[in-house]
Simulated assay, not measured.
Amino acid sequence: MSENEADILLVEDNPGDVRLTRGAFKDGKIANTLHVTEDGVEALDFCYQRNEFADARCPDLILLDLNLPRKDGEEVLEELKADSDLRHIPVIVLTSSDSHEDMVKSYDLHANAYLTKPVNPVKFIETIQTLERFWLSLVRLPECDRQ
């Protein structure tokens, strides 16, 4: 990944949250490409460059909702972190769940961070922009082995 350039995978089935996240990244100062998948199966296909995502670039950062159709976020997280080629990708759980059990389980599965989505749209955008500044400006991310 070159400085100020990132491929971000948002795994989110709520169109409103996708819209807010896109807007927050668009307003940010960091050049990035936001890819969106709507369920856990698509997310794994994207990361493994399978099916319709055969030409996808390996994401530098994954924003993962827990409550997903077909394969939930915990299953996706567990599979990603078990794969030696993908486990280095930071996975930020971004969910509406404020359950202590969900948080602990996510960290047990090696999530890099757990954020509860604010209900207020302005706070939601602020959260995304803070996440973007931290993970894409301050943190050094490794290059993905899969290209």
Score class of each variant (00 low, 15 high):
D145M: 10
H100M: 12
N67M: 15
L44M: 13
D60N: 04
V11E: 00
K29I: 12
N120Y: 07
Q147C: 08
D27W: 15
A31T: 15
A54I: 08
T127S: 05
R87A: 11
D55E: 11
A56H: 04
A56W: 00
L66C: 02
E101F: 13
Q147A: 08
D98F: 12
Y114R: 01
D55L: 13
L9A: 02
D72L: 06
S96N: 06
G16R: 13
E12I: 02
L131H: 05
D98P: 06
V104K: 14
L115P: 01
D60E: 09
K26T: 11
R70E: 11
D83Q: 06
T116C: 15
V104H: 12
N67T: 14
L115I: 12
I125W: 13
R50H: 14
S96Y: 06
D102L: 04
I92N: 02
Q129A: 05
E5Q: 13
D65F: 02
E52M: 12
G28Q: 06
L64E: 01
G40V: 03
D17H: 08
W135H: 00
D98Y: 09
E101R: 15
P121I: 01
G28Y: 06
E38F: 11
N32C: 15
S106C: 08
I8F: 08
V76E: 04
G40L: 05
L109Y: 11
E101Y: 09
P142F: 06
D145F: 13
D145L: 14
R70S: 13
A24M: 01
K71H: 13
P69G: 13
V93P: 00
T21P: 05
R22T: 11
C47T: 03
C47M: 12
V122P: 05
A113F: 08
E52R: 07
E78K: 14
D102M: 04
W135K: 04
E75C: 11
L77R: 01
P121M: 02
E12C: 03
E12G: 02
E3Q: 14
L66Y: 03
D65T: 03
A82D: 12
K117M: 04
T33K: 15
R140Y: 09
G23V: 10
L66R: 02
Y48C: 04
P59H: 05
F53V: 00
C47E: 07
L64D: 02
I128R: 00
T130A: 09
A56I: 00
R87K: 09
P121C: 06
Q129F: 01
L131S: 00
H110S: 09
G23D: 12
T95Y: 07
V139R: 08
L141H: 01
V36G: 00
E38I: 05
F134R: 10
V18A: 06
N112E: 07
